[in-house]
């Protein structure tokens, strides 16, 4: 039987869903301009060496934590996680982007279906980071499915942003996304179980890139 959440997930995780994610490269634009990610091969290496490990060690465990709070209706716990995300995101631009995407997503999804828990969260004055709002919105999904949805949109976001930054065709881009998700998927269940004290990832390069992008004289993306 078709799970109730699947049609919903297909709609809100679709690239046509107007969350505004298409306008963000989350630091990739600066890395391309700096020559650190210079071509398609370097982009794929960047995805596998930096984006995927960061998802597994930091974002997916935090998403799973938020998902547990949301599934139990623990909005205070979710808000505490949401506020901590302000501290995890040292670069103001990526912090603002995350809040902007989350707030936009929360507003849009409330227009689609009445959901008292979403409305209650919107009224709390929380930062509404993208990760926290996604955890809340996907609380009826199995946590691994929510983790996969989060990872897929993060990988696809970087890869499709790169199409505007370097010579990269759609076919190659989709192949890249597929290989990345295939590599990541078997590891998601374990990533959802990472204990709080082990959550974290070392990526000063991407943090510096995001910090520098905010001051770039010319830029295509908001972040």
């Amino acid at each position: 039987m078709l799970p109730d959440w699947l049609p919903w997930l297909l709609q809100v995780n679709d690239s046509a869903f107007p969350s505004g994610a298409y306008a963000h490269s989350l630091g990739l634009e600066e890395l391309v301009q700096a020559g650190v990610v210079g071509d398609a091969a370097a982009l794929e290496a960047f995805l596998h060496r930096q984006v995927l490990p960061g998802l597994l060690a930091l974002e997916v465990p935090l998403l799973a934590s938020g998902h547990r709070c949301a599934a139990q209706g623990d909005l205070a716990g979710l808000q505490a996680l949401d506020e901590t995300l302000d501290a995890w995101k040292l670069a103001a631009e990526s912090r603002a982007a995350s809040r902007q995407l989350g707030s936009r997503r929360l507003a849009l999804t409330q227009q689609l279906d009445a959901d008292p828990l979403l409305a209650a969260y919107a009224a709390r004055g929380a930062p509404c980071h993208h990760l926290a709002v996604s955890a809340l919105e996907w609380r009826r999904l199995p946590v691994e499915a929510a983790a996969c949805a989060w990872a897929q949109q993060a990988i696809a976001g970087s890869a499709t942003a790169a199409m505007k930054l370097m010579p990269l065709g759609q076919d190659r881009c989709q192949g890249m996304i597929r290989r990345a998700v295939r590599a990541l998927a078997p590891l998601l269940t374990d990533a959802c179980q990472v204990p709080p004290e082990a959550v974290g990832w070392f990526n000063p390069l991407l943090e510096i890139a995001s910090m520098r992008h905010a001051r770039a004289a010319e830029r295509l993306f908001i972040s």
């Binding site: 650190v36 960047f46 596998h48 060496r49 930096q50 995927l52 490990p53 060690a57 930091l58 506020e83 901590t84 302000d86 501290a87 995890w88 040292l90 082990a198 959550v199 974290g200 990832w201 070392f202 990526n203 000063p204 390069l205 991407l206």
Partner: peptide, 24 residues
């Protein structure tokens, strides 16, 4: 108020944990 949090685990035997240093 918590304004910055960093948690790193760098293990050179797992090259991905070093990528953010050595890629530059």
């Amino acid at each position: 108020r918590l304004v910055a949090r960093e948690r790193y685990r760098v293990e050179p035997e797992q090259p991905a944990t070093l990528a953010a240093l050595t890629d530059c």
